[in-house]
Each structure stands twice: as C-alpha cells, then as structure tokens.
Computed example of a mutant assay.
Amino acid sequence: MQWFDCLDGMFHNLIHMELIFDCTYHSQRFKWGWLIKLLQNSPKLQTMIIEEYDDTIHNYADQEWKDPEFVPECFLSHLTTCSLRNYTSANCRMQFAKYIMQINSRVLSTMTIQIAKSVKSSTKIQMCKELSLCPTNSATCKLLFI
C-alpha cells in the first residue's frame, strides 16, 4: 500500500485547483502517484495550476513518472486550462506535460508553461520546441510559454 492510497475521498464539485509542490528528495518520489490519485478523484476539474516551489530539485524523480492505467475523467471531459509554473526540463515533468497535452485531454483549450528562471536559455528553447511538437487531442489547444 502506497501512502497516497489514503486519498480515497471524491471531490465531485472541485472545478479549480492550485497546487504548490515544495518537495524534498524523499517526498518527490511519491508526488506523481499522489497527483494522479487526486486527479482521478476530481472528475469535474476544469482548471489545474501546478507550481514547483523549489526549482533546485532537478532530476530526483525522473524515473518515477509512469502513465496511469486509467486516464482521469477530468482530462477526458472537463479540463480546459492547465498551467505548469516554475517548470524545469526534468524528464518526469516533461513527460507529465506531454501526458496532459496528448490524447488524454480532449477539451484542453490552454496549456501554459512558465519555465523556471534557473533554466538555461538553450534548454528553454529545447523545451519549447519539444512541447510545441507534441501532438494534442484537442483541436483548440493553445500552448503558451511565459
């Protein structure tokens, strides 16, 4: 049993969610599983804002991202706005952004990526290019970099 399995309540009326992750090395390993469980329990979520508080955590949990077995219902029918703030080029973070944009988010209209100030210019360009080339399932999805 994972520690995030205790998150068993449903948030049927949650339509706007803002999360700030200030993770240590040890809790960073569990962040993705907890987040997916929260999303699965928030079927009507329309707006999701996630901020990485400490951009000094680089690639601690790169190997931890795995596409979930079931796509959260909110991705399939309600999530229209997603904002990822203070983002770095860590592989797990890029995989999560792609997961949202690709076939999983049918009604996504705006995906905003705010790249962390600590990221080198050349890396920022590579991130923008990689995410811009990512196919989306939503015909109306606009990708914004700020």
Rank of each mutant, 00 (worst) to 15 (best):
Y99N: 02
H12S: 14
Q95G: 03
P68I: 06
V119H: 01
S109Q: 15
E52V: 10
P68N: 08
L108G: 03
N137W: 11
I50H: 02
F145P: 03
Q126D: 05
K142F: 01
K117E: 08
T24I: 06
T136A: 07
W65L: 05
S121I: 11
L144K: 13
I20S: 13
Q28F: 09
G9H: 10
A90L: 00
A61G: 14
L38I: 14
K44M: 09
K44T: 07
W3I: 14
Q46H: 07
I20M: 09
N41W: 06
N13A: 10
K117H: 11
A139C: 12
I113C: 05
M111F: 15
M10L: 14
L19C: 08
S105G: 06
C23E: 14
T88I: 02
K37L: 09
W65P: 03
Q114S: 13
D22S: 13
H78P: 03
N41K: 12
D54Y: 11
L45K: 05
T136I: 01
F145Q: 01
P135W: 06
P43R: 06
R106H: 12
I20W: 09
V119Y: 00
K37Q: 15
D8Y: 11
H16G: 07
I36N: 00
S109G: 07
N104V: 04
L35R: 00
K124W: 01
A116N: 01
D67M: 09
M94L: 15
L19A: 07
I113D: 02
I15W: 06
S27W: 03
S77I: 08
S42R: 03
V119D: 00
V71Q: 01
N86T: 02
N59Q: 10
S118W: 06
K129P: 00
D8A: 12
F30I: 10
K120V: 00
M48R: 04
S27C: 10
D22T: 06
I146D: 14
T81S: 12
D55K: 05
I103S: 15
I57Q: 04
C141L: 09
R29P: 01
C82N: 04
S83V: 07
E18I: 05
Q63E: 15
T81W: 09
K117W: 05
Y87H: 11
T110C: 10
I57L: 12
S121N: 14
I36Y: 02
L76M: 13
K129Q: 10
I36P: 00
G9Q: 14
H58P: 02
L14N: 04
M48W: 03
K120D: 05
S122K: 14
Q28A: 15
Y25F: 15
W3F: 12
Q2W: 09
T140N: 13
Q40V: 06
T81E: 11
S27F: 05
A139K: 11
S121A: 14
C141Q: 07
M10P: 02
T24M: 07
K44E: 11
F145W: 06
T140E: 12
G9Y: 13
L19I: 15
